[in-house]
Design a binder for these strands. Structure first.
Length: 432
DNA sequence: TCTGGGGTCCTAGGACCC
DNA sequence: TCTGGGGTCCTAGGACCC
């Protein structure tokens, strides 16, 4: 049996924990550059705001309907996530942290009434860190996701599902008829792994509901739609095909990409941006003890400005020696950028991707008979990471990243950022 | 004026090999 | 007349996830 624990409207709920005045208020959290809505409170959803809605299209609701918008505060959300995960882990023996706001817990061998146990854990998360959650329980991960969907909607859309399923829904504790009635009441696109494209094609074939999909012939689905959907069908029937991954596998690629706060035309600004993106990507690389064998840089203008001259280009470089050294990677990234840049374009976005990753245990340190250069670089990077971790991002950086006063233009806009309540002593909430 | 960021897996097709 | 069969690796593109 698996549980899926999921924070409701996670980012919006994180903000509410520290600003209770936002309770009951339509609230959205905006993406980088305050570009579009990436989280919505129930009240905001009720206003018809869609996931990903551009801010400039909904900002009138601030005046018309009291909509509050906040810039994404990822330091806060990451910290709240850790707290929620450690509490959710108490549900069972093994946990897979699936995303910032949800985790699977393996309940094999857990005795007693699982529904009751889930309710208790849910109440604890609510009381200890202020985060509302819903929990789905079922014999497979796909069904647990679906049970979670039912728990959420039974709570917020009365009539969609029986009210007693609100907050905690245990599909594994129901008899067949009851479970099938719930699957029949669920549109096929709500199933985990069935997106827009697939659901459109399925519906054209007469497969409208989760129950229709569960009843499809596995071999036929395998042949016509591929192995992923075939596994989904089996999982919907209670046969586990997806196991729990306790340790997230090391990433196979690491990216750092950003849209700019305003259009960038100068190579000098792009150079600063690319240096910073490379530095950030290299930090992530070293954190998972990997080396990159390839590096890719891209720059592009805004596809939302079809009236302007468009330019989009990328260059991939194979490194002669795999590396995690910020200076080395930056040098190559800059070389790539130079071949891409064309004057006269308004660039809107750039990015750096590190690929062909391998474990740094296999690092070739060279013979270095006289000069232990690689060893020095290794320690230098360790020191750099330590300083930036303990004294804040950007404490030490490459000169080509630019001095703070010259780094305007490409930096992102965050005009509605809340304090880092849980990760900055200076931002502690004062009670009294 | 104003539209995010970061991943994964699968498939098909081509190159190449024996 | 009839021109194998099986395998690997790589890449690009598509679909999906949060």
């Amino acid at each position: 049996m698996y549980a899926l624990v999921d924070g409701n409207n996670f980012y919006a709920s994180c903000e509410r924990v520290f600003r209770p005045s936002l309770n009951g208020v339509p609230l959205v959290v905006l993406s980088n550059n305050d570009g579009c809505a990436i989280a919505r409170s129930e009240e905001a959803k009720a206003l018809g705001i869609k996931m990903g809605a551009p801010w400039f299209q909904i900002r009138h609701l601030a005046e018309d309907a009291g909509l509050v918008a906040l810039s994404a505060n990822f330091a806060l959300y990451g910290d709240m996530s850790e707290r929620m995960m450690s509490l959710a882990a108490g549900l069972g023996q093994q946990q897979e942290v699936y995303s910032i706001d949800e985790c699977f817990v393996d309940l094999h061998g857990v005795p007693g009434d699982l529904t009751e146990r889930a309710r208790q854990v849910r109440a604890r998360i609510r009381q200890w860190i202020g985060m509302p959650t819903c929990i789905g329980l079922a014999p497979t991960k796909t069904l647990a996701k679906l049970a979670n969907h039912m728990a959420k909607n039974a709570e917020r859309k009365p009539g969609s599902y029986p009210a007693e399923l609100a907050q905690v829904c245990h599909l594994g504790a129901m008899d067949r008829a009851e479970r099938e009635a719930l699957l029949a009441a669920t549109a096929v696109q709500e199933v985990w792994g069935v997106g827009r494209q697939t659901s459109a094609k399925l519906q054209a074939e007469g497969i409208q509901t989760a129950l229709d999909l569960a009843r499809a012939d596995v071999a036929t689905v395998r042949r016509r739609w591929g192995i992923v959907l075939a596994k989904t069908v089996q999982e919907l029937n209670g046969t586990p095909c997806l196991s729990l991954d306790e340790l997230p596998p090391a990433k196979q690629q690491i990216a750092c990409t950003r849209s700019f706060g305003e259009p960038v035309t100068e190579l000098a600004s792009l150079r600063q941006a690319v240096t910073e993106f490379t530095s950030r990507a290299a930090e992530k690389l070293r954190r998972q003890h990997s080396l990159a064998g390839q590096l890719m840089v891209f720059i592009r203008t805004s596809p939302f400005r079809p009236d302007e001259r468009q330019h989009s280009a990328h260059r991939q470089i194979k490194l002669s020696t795999p590396s995690s050294d910020t200076a080395c990677l930056t040098e190559w990234a800059q070389a790539a950028l130079h071949t891409l840049y064309q004057p006269g374009h308004k660039y809107a976005k750039a990015g750096v991707m590190l690929m062909d990753l391998q474990s740094s245990a296999s690092e070739q340190l060279g013979l270095a008979l006289e000069d232990d250069e690689p060893g020095h670089r290794h320690r230098l990077m360790g020191t750099l990471d330590h300083l930036n971790q303990h004294h804040g991002r950007g404490t030490v950086l490459l000169a080509s990243a630019g001095m703070p006063q010259t780094r305007k233009g490409w930096k992102m806009k965050q005009e509605r950022l809340t304090p880092q309540y849980t990760t900055d002593w200076g931002a502690l909430v004062v009670a009294g």
